[in-house]
Write a protein that binds this DNA or RNA. Structure first.
Lengths: 354, 354
DNA sequence: CAGAATTTCAGTTGCGCACCTCAAAAATTG
DNA sequence: CAATTTTTGAGGTGCGCAACTGAAATTCTG
């Protein structure tokens, strides 16, 4: 703007135009402006135009605080989270609790329901018997016909459903809050391939369960890139550690014995303590590249110690807030800004830990 | 909670406790509750305790919409951004504009002032002549005595100052919104070292200007890790490309000629088009590991094409929103949640691009 | 052209809170 | 005990908007 590259004069008037200002300059009453603004019917086209001109002229923008207060509506959301669960789920639950705290100031209320989300019948049952008082539901979904049906049913009943962390893509859910899992797997593969330079050898993949859509998708993405871009690395068939440390330790220990040329391990689920134990016990922790998911107290320690080489992460805080924002915006008929709601695939090395 | 792992009964009452509810259960008047809530004086300790007990019992939380409306205060913030500038700065400016849009609904108003932020005198001058009508300022700082003095002066006058992207650590700014630059440099070095496996060779560092604190810090962090962890890689003294593509192309071309054993380039500033051009012209784009900063349309293309190997990024959208949130929270006397305001060091590979 | 049906508009209320005033009540002091 | 100070109550106002009520203006009908 200004000549010398500096424009530090007095700011433009900080006063907001109110509905009344609009009414006055349009020469109509408050009520008429309200009808135009909120798209109620019963206003002549000519009057609408007059009001809209006034709105444009004054740069009127509704005060969201006043609008919310006047509307006086409040919303109830249910977050369906796993019972028990691993560190990541514990973090997520905690973040949902924080989000609930914040939302309580915004006329939004979150109830956390704990369900065994890995059992399709239990999960579907929980969704089916959900109180009709809820305006929205966030659920760690399972891509299973019964669950899908339950989600579709809720949607039909007018309840907004967002899937959280794990999606049910073919359902009629409103939105998915979580990462692109195949892309996360590809990211891990690229990192693995580059870290291993041109070396030949074997790479193992350990999942919690391939019945879980997110684990399967990560594994798929990983294999896709590894086989096409790094043919000198031989990927073993994926193992299932059931997200259990003890079992994962055994699997890892067996791998290390059976494959002296083991160069890398990609863990696309939980049970990381087992992997760390086995790797450290074998004495090959530094030479084997281990890439895993989710930043927790444990994985952070393994990364700092050098046992783990990279962590692919999704930010549970962001996910919890995003789910709440999407639900609230949908129920209040407000728009959302897509790129604020996109959950990124974080890569953490020892050096960029938050 | 529930026996079968499912607790999907009727939610607790969705009604919010109001100030009046608190007054009634505490057996005092609205005015007294107000005095307690807003920490006004003139209330006996015993009465304070009674009110606080009622607040706790009812789980009372002020309705932020109503509070904001009643308070009726509004805030003006100035964002001091560079004139012209590179892609990153253009993105940032756009994101600040979006943020301004959002903030306008929250009784916050942002004016964007364009200044040549690389000239300490101009920048300090702009800060000094800033209208006193502003409650807060976000500025891309320069770590220079005059700028520092200007910031301290604003702070003394009661204006909240946050530094954005580039800090002035020794000033009395309220908060720094940006990444840990030495850590970003270390991250680049680790990636470089790992990507190059055990190979020997030369690594070049290109900065915009080492007089810029962020560039210097990145370069420092990079060298630190490279020399201590990857001694087989020889880091050349940093070059200054002045964030200019043409000049950076020449520098890069000269590097490629002079150092046949050049294995990697770390660019901790702008001017990436020059690097890409020179690398692609030399035919060594695939063998030289190039790591750079800031995800833009250009760097994204270089990454997808394989010319660039990794991008260290700070999210300008997050930074703009965070600066606005911090300023607003400070002025309104509200708390901020630190881990939501922490700007992460993103690593982007071809596979996890947003 | 009267009367009915419809469209268009103005006026009013209240959301929950902050902030203010003034007077009454209680506690403290000499 | 009276005089003084401290604490509390009652009440009001207004923030900007949504939503409702009822009346006036317009159009339609026979």
């Amino acid at each position: 703007m200004g000549g010398a590259g500096v424009t530090a004069g007095a700011p433009t008037a900080p006063v907001r135009a109110t509905l009344e200002d609009v009414a006055r300059t349009a020469g109509v009453s408050l009520a008429t402006v309200d009808r135009v603004i909120n798209r109620r019917e019963g206003v002549r086209a000519k009057t609408v135009a007059r009001v809209e001109a006034a709105v444009a002229k004054l740069g009127y923008r509704a005060d969201v605080a006043a609008a919310r207060l006047a509307r006086g509506q409040s919303f109830r959301f249910a977050f369906v989270l796993p019972t028990g669960g691993n560190s990541f789920m514990t973090h997520l639950t905690e973040q949902v609790r924080h989000t609930a705290d914040w939302l309580a100031g915004q006329r939004g209320f979150i109830d956390i329901l704990h369900v065994d989300v890995f059992d399709p019948d239990l999960l579907a049952g929980a969704l089916e018997t959900l109180s009709p008082a809820y305006h929205g539901v966030a659920v760690i979904a399972l891509d299973h016909p019964r669950v899908r049906a339950a989600i579709d049913d809720l949607t039909t009943r007018g309840v907004a459903v967002v899937t959280l962390v794990s999606d049910a893509p073919s359902s009629r859910r409103l939105h998915y809050v979580g990462i692109d899992n195949p892309a996360a797997g590809r990211t891990a593969a690229t990192l693995m391939g580059r870290y291993l330079g041109g070396r030949e050898g074997t790479v193992a993949v350990i999942a919690g369960s391939l019945a879980l859509r997110d684990h399967a998708e990560r594994q798929f993405g990983f294999h896709q890139i590894l086989s096409s871009e790094y043919p000198q690395l031989r990927a073993l068939p994926p193992l299932e550690g059931r997200d259990d440390s003890a079992r994962t330790r055994e699997l890892t220990a067996a791998l290390l014995v059976r494959h002296p040329d083991l160069r890398g391990i990609y863990c696309c689920g939980a049970g990381n303590r087992g992997i760390a134990d086995a790797l450290e016990a074998s004495g090959r922790a530094r030479e084997v590249v281990w890439i895993t998911h989710e930043l927790t107290d444990h994985t952070r320690r393994f990364l700092v110690r050098g046992t783990c080489d990279a962590i692919i992460n999704q930010d549970p805080g962001h996910e919890a807030r995003s789910a709440a924002r999407v639900l609230l915006a949908h129920c209040a008929g407000e728009p959302i800004s897509p790129d604020q709601e996109r959950i990124r695939i974080d890569i953490f090395l020892r050096d960029n830990l938050p």
